[in-house]
Each structure stands twice: as C-alpha cells, then as structure tokens.
Design a protein around this nucleic acid. Structure first.
Lengths: 204, 204
DNA sequence: GGCCGCATCGACCGATCGGTTGATGCCCGG
DNA sequence: CCGGGCATCAACCGATCGGTCGATGCGGCC
C-alpha cells in the first residue's frame, strides 16, 4: 500500500486526484494539504507526496527542501502546470523524485506514483526533453554560422518566411535551423531562444 | 514626363517594372541598372530611381548616399522585400524619399512614384507603422509592471496560455499586454520584443 | 466630472509556428 | 570507406500567435 499526501491549494484538484487514486487498491490518500507548510506537517504518514509548486504561503520548492530534512524517506512527485526551467530546476534541485505536468493522462500519473514510490525518477516527456537538452548543451557559442544568422534575424522580428527570402533558402530550411537552435539552447520557442542567446552573449 | 531608373539585380523584376510603367503615359523608363554602382552612373538621366537594397557589389544604401552627392535632385524610392528596422532605417538615413515593399499593389507603386517625383515622402503601411512606433517609443523602462511581468515570462518561453495561468488572468489579457509591449518597443512579435528588451536592459 | 493609464476580457479568423515524418548532398576526419 | 556535422528540402497538421473588433472598471489628476 502506497500512502499518498496530496498538496494543492485548489480543493477541486485535490478531489480530482482523490478520485483517480480511489480506484487503485494499492494506493491510499492518507492526507491532503493546501500549502507547503501544511504538507510538511502531514508528510509523516505518507510514502509519496504529490506536490504542487505554486501555492500561497510556503510554495512547493521550499516544502520539498523542508521535507528532505524532516521526512527524508518520503518521495516527492511534483505535479504542476508549469514546465519552464525556472520551475523545473529549483524543484529538482530541492530533491523532487519526479516531475509531472497536470495534463498527464491518468495512466501516466498512476505509473509515476508507483515509480516514485520505488525511488525511480519520473519525468514528463516535455520536462525530460528539457533536461536532456540542458545536459547535452554544448559550450556557449556552439551554434553554427548559419544558425547564428537565423537567430539574429529572428531576434529582429523576421518571420520564417522573411528569413528564408533573406538567406535565399526555403522556409523549411529556416525551420530546421530553428529546431536545431532550440535544441542547442534548451528552449522551445523563438522568444526564449532570443532570451537565452542574450544571456549567453550570443546576441548583443 | 517622369523619367525612371530601375535598379534591381534581377532582370525579371526590372522587366516586370518596365511592364507596369509602360502603360503610363507620364512615366518613362530611361535606364536600368543591376547594382548600386551602375545606378549611380546612370542616374543622371532620371528623375526618380526605383532602388532595390540588397544587390551584389554596391548595395542600395551606399548607392543612395552616392546619389545624394552626385545627383542631388534625383528622388530615390526604395523598392524591396524587406521591412525590418535594419533595412529601413539605413535607407531612410541615406536619403531615400520613399520606401515601398515589392508586394505593393501596382496602383500603390504608381502613386508612390508620382509622389516621390513631387518630393513627397512615401512609405508602405508596414514601414510607416514601424517608424511611427519608433517615433512615439517612450523612454526606456516605460513598460508597466504587468507588461514587464508578461515580457519576462515570454522570454522564458511560456506560451500565452501558460502565462495566463501563471498570472491568474485570461489569455486575452496576456495578448493585450503583449500588443501593448510590441507597440511600446516598436516590434511586431515576441522574439523581437525579447531582443529589444535585452538591448534596452529591460531584461537581463 | 472628464480624461488618461492601466488592467481586464471575449470572439473570430487568418497567419505563422512548431513538430514530425523523412530525405539528399557535401565536406572533413578517422 | 564510413560516420558525423552541416546545409538543404517537402508536406502535413495541430497549436499558437497576432490582429481586430470592441468593451468595462478602477485610480489618479486636473
């Protein structure tokens, strides 16, 4: 029997999760909490904590850090809406065992809970992709010449179509370059690519 | 009779323009040039020069600057594919009387040629909008607090939908904020907004 | 009170983007 | 020769964006 603690400031979400787990004979919701502080207080009875990140008062990241000190055996599976680096990384650094997005199918959620209980890391595909991209991110400035040209154009607001005209290639080529750029910079859209490039001094 | 010089490195474009002007009794194409240097040599016979910007050898901007010295009375109407700031501003600073995009309807082109001949400035709507945005750009840092919040999220790669969830507002609100941001920064999409914000130190 | 700036919002729609399936060819180094 | 990196390309489709029509309400200032 895996004992669960559901931590979310929205009662509807907590009820929804209860409903999901109610049908599983090996899962039992033993407590709920509406914020991080309450989660820390109630985690003693749980094996796995389903932790939202953004909550009033103490948020998820701080709670995960506290749980590592107070209930070191508990597994924390983050269940949240957000998958940006600024959300993912702090939670993982704080000690989360897994990171799932709230739009995950119920089967994935159930599988994640059981995996987390076994101490296995669980990441949603989107988050996994981001971490993988981050790990294999080459040194700064590793964009090819062509990629840098495309990026500079995008930063100036040109559409893919315009960029294609500008560089005398097809739009498909621009898109391919962009996908490579996103991969190398660990981002998923042009705006973030521009931001990341500025942060790395690739653009100025 | 308005005497025209067509400057474009593509023969097809030159032929196409000839065809447009052939039907106009008050317009006469007196010469063609395939690059800036040739344009400068042939401009003496012309009243209005239709100038492309990106050409091998001497480009349009340099040619416009030379024409100001050698044939100061000639009017230069830029006719090009590109309307980014990095194309528009140098041409206008160099002394172009007008700036049109190649996708302009023929009526607009004809009207522009006649206006340019009279010394009137002519701008395509897109370019006009960009210049207007630039002129009324407020001082740096004039984004509202909310706009800055939205911009920071966008720079991190969040979609409008995610940003809406994040800030507990509707997606329509995010879009409105973004449109205001684009207007204030004189850009037309999120990537350029991020770039511009970094240039101005609004993001770091 | 009127005006302005700011924040909020909906609906619709065309344009563009991102992802996904591949693929080819060139150059360089092992 | 082979493999890897780079550049190039097409087609399809769902997701998202940007633009456009408005609109309301609040607070501050004149």
């Amino acid at each position: 029997m895996i004992r669960l603690l559901i931590v979310d400031d929205h009662p509807i979400v907590r009820d929804g999760l209860r409903g999901v787990f109610a049908a599983e004979p090996d899962l039992e919701v033993v407590a709920e909490a509406a914020d991080g502080a309450e989660a820390v207080r109630r985690a003693g009875d749980a094996d796995v904590v389903l932790m939202d990140l953004r909550m009033p008062g103490m948020g998820g990241v701080a709670a995960i850090e506290r749980l590592r000190e107070t209930v070191p055996d508990v597994r924390v599976l983050v269940l949240t809406t957000f998958d940006t680096d600024s959300d993912v990384l702090p939670a993982i650094e704080a000690g989360a065992t897994g990171y799932l997005l709230k739009d995950a199918p119920r089967e994935e959620l159930l599988r994640a809970v059981r995996s987390a209980h076994r101490g296995e890391s669980v990441l949603s595909p989107a988050v996994a992709g981001r971490l993988m991209g981050r790990v294999r991110r080459p040194s700064d400035g590793a964009l090819s010449k062509r990629e840098r040209e495309v990026l500079a154009l995008i930063a100036d607001g040109t559409t893919n179509r315009e960029a294609a005209k500008r560089l005398f290639v097809s739009e498909a080529t621009i898109k391919t370059h962009l996908l490579h750029i996103y991969e190398k910079l660990g981002v998923r859209d042009r705006a973030a690519a521009v931001g990341e490039a500025y942060k790395r001094g690739l653009l100025s």
